[in-house]
Nucleic acid binder design. Sequence first.
DNA 1: CCTGAGCGG
Length: 99
Amino acid sequence: MSIYVGNLSYDVTREDLESVFNEYGRVNRVSLPMDREADRPRGFAFVEMAAKDDEAKAIEALNGAEWMGRVMKVNEARPRTAAAGGSGGGGGNYRRNSF
DNA sequence: CCTGAGCGG
């Protein structure tokens, strides 16, 4: 289970995310992908926590919260491995929460 | 490669 964190500031690091998400539970891993062409952060990250219950709390608490001067969007992340024979379909629209 | 899309190796 992983969490998608979007609309982040380019100044944020995985240490910052780890620190913030650690307040809601133990952070398993923090991933901060960057643009392959520009070698710069895309403004989103992925956080994996030990307990999915804590992930839900973190999502509820941090989604739509203002952080680093940006309103970050936290949501349940898609499975990165969407290859054939994997999750089997499920390529639906994960975008929820219209606020 | 210096920026604003939302989902990575």
